[in-house]
């Protein structure tokens, strides 16, 4: 039987030389490194700091910033108030008020739109779950990363604000529109 022990390899610790044991040469090289950095920063301007409010960062493609609601190309809210994002949101930043039973004749085939849609940007952790879970492609994490306000209530973005910030999404999917068109062609469907 091959003992499991036999498969172990023992790594030998390398013996330090006398000079190394003295530490002094190592100290010296350390001092050289730090001094080089000091010199380069002070006299040759090799600074890595980005001085934030004056200098801004280029947001890379695919960055996940604040989540905003988007409209479709016909200026309609894409969100159907399914509340999946509210459910999935880990810090419970989203709060949706569903529309209630009243039938809104203007929304046509999409019976449901949120009456109110709030995201508490103080709670949101920009995780992107809402975008991922949304079955309607109605919410997207966009490029804003630095949101400020002077009060807590100001940091709760309501539907109008989210839609205004979110802009228009030109995705190819217009599920509800297609359904309505399809249905209109069939006599059984009476949209009156």
């Amino acid at each position: 039987m091959n003992n499991a022990r036999n498969n172990l390899t023992t790594v030998k610790r390398t013996e330090l030389t006398f000079l190394e044991k003295l530490y002094v040469p190592t100290l010296w090289s350390g001092l050289k490194v730090t001094f080089r950095h000091f010199w380069n920063t002070l006299f040759r301007g090799k600074v890595v700091t980005m001085e934030y409010p004056e200098q801004k960062w280029t947001v890379p493609e695919g960055y996940r910033g604040a989540p905003y609601l988007v409209k479709d190309t016909e200026d309609r809210t894409k969100c159907v108030s399914c509340q999946l994002c509210e459910f999935v949101c880990p810090p419970k930043a989203i709060r949706i008020t569903p529309p209630g039973p009243a039938v809104d004749p203007t929304t046509g085939n999409v019976e449901k739109r949120p009456k109110e849609f709030e995201i508490n940007m103080l709670r949101c952790i920009f995780c992107g779950f809402c975008q991922e879970v949304c079955p309607e492609e109605a919410i997207f994490l966009q490029k804003d990363y630095s949101l400020t306000g002077v009060s807590r209530s100001e940091m709760i973005y309501d539907k109008e604000k989210l839609l205004a910030l979110g802009g228009v999404h030109r995705g190819p999917i217009m599920k509800w529109k297609q359904k309505a068109d399809e249905a209109r062609k069939q006599d059984a469907f009476k949209p009156e």
């Binding site: 108030s81 399914c82 509340q83 509210e86 459910f87 569903p98 529309p99 209630g100 039973p101 019976e111 449901k112």
Partner: peptide, 12 residues
Amino acid sequence: SKDFRFQMRVWF
């Protein structure tokens, strides 16, 4: 139910 229609998702 017209009463409960679009009031809340049941999982909440």
